[in-house]
Amino acid sequence: MTTPLTESAIVSRLRAAGCVFAEDEAQLILSTARTGADASAMVERRAAGEPLEHVLGWAWFCGLRIAVEPGVFVPRRRTEFLVRRAHALAPPEAVVLDLCCGSGALGAALVSGLEEFALHSADIEPASVRCARRNIAPFGGLAYEGDLFEPLPDALRGRVDVLLCNVPYVPTGEVGLLPAEARDHEPRVALDGGPDGLDVLRRVTAEAPRWLAPHGRLLFETSERQVADAVAAVEQGGLSAVVATSEEFDATVIVGVKSV
């Protein structure tokens, strides 16, 4: 019989592997593991460099426990600022579309704070769509698999009040500089934004006006150095742009507004 790992043994193993928050991670692993064997396997996966959220099978986001499978983009805390902005702007009975949805965390977090809504999500990665369906099912959400707007039902055209789009915005040449947890374990399509990081965004802003309702809003995050080019892409698509920043979340969000 294998002796169960103690919390101190797990902390030592994780610390030796370079985990900065070894104590916190040890507690999360022990509280999530169903058996001692599960805990041992989880510790070894984490020590090998797998993201903690993939090891646990979930991530905290905006107060929700979001299911996250291996190979699925892990929602970042900074993106909670985007959800806050969207919540402040959402009209009553909002039609919400979460594009490039990954785990579906953004859409789920937004509608969890709304009274009346319809939620739709889409992603090109099959694993992400599977994960999103689990996370948005409690909210009656629907998830579609395909490239950007392509898989969406035509009935959504001109009806979307809030379009969340966590587009990849890392320039191709900088993907290799990302932490190993991201570049080795998350889908490249969720990270790589093309030569200047804005290729996917330009595709979204070019088509978004056809899906937005009058006065509908497109929200996405970007880096400080990309703001000018991102605003230009929004305006070229026919939307007006507003930039919002947060020191608390170290995040920059751009809101594109359809006037009519």
Rank of each mutant, 00 (worst) to 15 (best):
A48M: 00
G49N: 01
G49M: 01
E50H: 02
P51D: 03
H54N: 04
V55A: 02
V55W: 00
V55T: 07
L56F: 04
L56Q: 03
G57Q: 06
G57S: 06
W58S: 11
W58L: 03
A59S: 14
W60P: 00
W60L: 10
F61Q: 13
F61L: 12
C62E: 15
C62V: 04
C62G: 08
G63E: 06
L64C: 04
I66C: 10
V68D: 08
V68P: 03
E69W: 09
E69N: 09
E69L: 14
E69M: 05
E69C: 00
P70Y: 02
P70E: 01
G71N: 05
G71H: 01
V72K: 01
V72G: 05
F73Q: 07
V74F: 00
V74W: 00
P75R: 08
R76F: 06
R76T: 05
R77M: 05
R77D: 11
R78W: 07
T79C: 06
T79R: 04
E80R: 11
E80L: 10
E80N: 11
F81H: 14
F81A: 11
L82P: 07
L82Y: 03
L82C: 14
V83Q: 04
V83E: 07
V83I: 15
V83F: 00
R84G: 15
R84H: 14
R84S: 15
R85W: 02
A86C: 13
A86I: 14
A88S: 15
A88H: 13
A88R: 15
A88N: 12
L89M: 14
L89V: 11
A90W: 13
P92N: 05
P92I: 03
P92V: 04
P92D: 13
